[in-house]
């Protein structure tokens, strides 16, 4: 198991933002967490990433138990991509600088060739290298964020709503890119999203969260086929299917 989470709880004051959440993800697998806002899905991800240190429970990465305070080696194995590509890049640093930062921190050599390779890997033209984030489109910025997360060669990528701020056509490109990268690098993904279609597209297994608890875990196949156990899962599924149906799909089905 690449990631094991047992009884993870996060409290803000007396209220639980996440309560007794347990799940595990195998190496090279994608695990999706869906839920509405306030369900605790992002809380779990941030605790996992080490951005929030006030949690209880057990988190194991590659079999090793991790503490609330993380060391540098952890950040070489686990990286994160944020929701908002406008907020996750430093406004005064060029793409070059953003991509070289992880290399400098971890003392990795040949920055020049690595940055050029990273841009190619996420299909960004070399001309973007010395641009500033505000000169790029949302989709390009999210590609930069992905490239930055991959700079130090992590094994696990935590994806926090990576496409929800993007146009649908760009979303498709980014989701395809994520699939390709996973195949090529054998990455383990944990994807948090409110969009069931996105989660079940990328992830074979899905955990559904409500009110801080993971109320159900099921495979994407079961979700598609409607083999759900918890009423909240079913409610989310039905809504998603209803709203995505246009006559285009009806037409296809007929």
């Amino acid at each position: 198991m690449m990631i094991e989470v047992e009884n993870l709880s996060v409290r803000y004051g007396t209220a639980y933002a996440a309560r007794d959440v347990s799940f595990s993800v195998a190496r090279g697998e994608s695990f999706g967490i869906v839920g509405e806002s306030g369900s605790g899905k992002s809380t779990v991800l941030r605790a996992l990433a080490g951005l929030n240190r006030d949690w209880t429970g057990t988190i194991r990465v590659g079999g090793e138990t991790v503490t609330p305070a993380r060391d540098r080696a952890f950040f070489r194995r686990v990286q994160m991509v944020f929701q908002d590509p406008y907020g996750s890049l430093h406004p005064r640093q060029t793409i070059d600088r953003a991509l070289s930062e992880p290399l400098l921190v971890h003392g990795i050599k040949d920055i020049e060739t690595r940055i050029a390779a990273a841009l190619t890997e996420v299909a960004l033209p070399p001309s973007t290298r010395f641009r500033y984030p505000h000169q790029l489109s949302g989709g390009q910025r999210q590609r930069v964020a992905i490239a930055r997360a991959l700079m130090a060669g992590p094994e696990v990528l935590l994806l926090d709503e990576p496409t929800s701020a993007l146009d649908v056509s760009v979303q498709a490109e980014v989701l395809n890119l994520l699939s390709d990268l996973q195949e090529k690098r054998g990455l383990t993904y944990i994807l948090v999203s409110h969009n069931l279609a996105v989660v079940s597209h990328l992830c074979a297994r899905i955990g559904v969260m409500q009110g801080g608890e993971m109320v159900e875990q099921l495979t994407a196949e079961d979700l598609r086929a409607g083999r759900t156990k918890h009423p909240h899962t079913e409610a989310l599924r039905r809504l998603s299917v209803e709203l995505e149906e246009t006559d285009a799909q009806h037409g296809k089905a007929a």
């Binding site: 649908v168 056509s169 979303q171 498709a172 490109e173 989701l175 395809n176 699939s179 069931l196 279609a197 996105v198 079940s200 597209h201 994407a220 979700l223 598609r224 599924r237 998603s240 299917v241 995505e244 149906e245 246009t246 285009a248 799909q249």
Partner: peptide, 19 residues
């Protein structure tokens, strides 16, 4: 293109169409 590049729950699309 807009309709086809969406991932949808009711049907497995291995790879999304790109606009």
């Amino acid at each position: 293109g807009l309709l086809e590049c969406l991932p949808i729950l009711s049907e497995k699309r291995r790879r999304l169409a790109v606009l």
